[in-house]
Amino acid sequence: MHELSLATDMTRIIGNALGRKVLLDRVNITIGPLSGISPESLRFCFTEVARMAGFGEPELVINLTRAKLICLECNTEYEAKDFYQGCPGCGSISRRILSGREFTVDSVELEEGSD
């Protein structure tokens, strides 16, 4: 797995956005079920990488989204965290995936007194 390099990319993005190293309370990110990322190993790597990069020990808050799908039989839009269930309207697995690949750093929360 490559969560270590992804955690490093996250700290690079945060550093670029803030323009400086400050202690962080929280880092809010979004991970979709089709991103191929394991939230547990990312969390494990990020704690260490963030500390080494001078951001303190922020809590990593992960917004795990569901994929959005549209049924090609009955046009029902629905959400799913995996792909074993068919459409809740008609049961068909004929569908198109509308979203689910996202992996973003959404925001950070600075530690009090860090500026």
């Binding site: 992804l6 990319d9 996250m10 690079r12 993005i13 945060i14 956005a17 803030l18 309370d25 990110i29 996202e102 992996f103 973003t104 750093v105 959404d106 925001s107 950070v108 929360e109 600075l110 009090e112």
Partner: peptide, 17 residues
């Protein structure tokens, strides 16, 4: 205070790739 401390980033982690 919490609003000020929160900095929006909204950046895809895969952007460099």
């Amino acid at each position: 205070d919490t609003i000020e401390r929160k900095v929006d980033i909204t950046t895809s982690v895969m952007n460099k790739n």
